[in-house]
Amino acid sequence: MTMRVFVNLYSTLRLDRFSDAEVELPGDATVADLLDKLQIPLQDVGVVVVNARSGTFQQKLQADDRITLIPPIGGG
């Protein structure tokens, strides 16, 4: 069983990728699995949002989820 999710990438994550896309994933996929599929290393992601809520790497995804990924270019 696969499912479709909608992905938005921001800033430098778009380079050589896309800004919006539909992505097919196995039915039990997590955010980390999505990053794996897009070949985005974990350390290149600072903010994860799933359906307008702050998300985490281990979070399980559902069909039609909307995921936003932003790189860590904050400060400290």
Partner: peptide, 20 residues
């Protein structure tokens, strides 16, 4: 001062949920 201030890029698009 860099710790008195929001760093904008993290609030692009749906990133703004962190300030909802």
């Amino acid at each position: 001062d860099h710790v008195e201030t929001p760093h904008d890029p993290g609030f692009q698009g749906d990133g703004v949920v962190n300030l909802y």
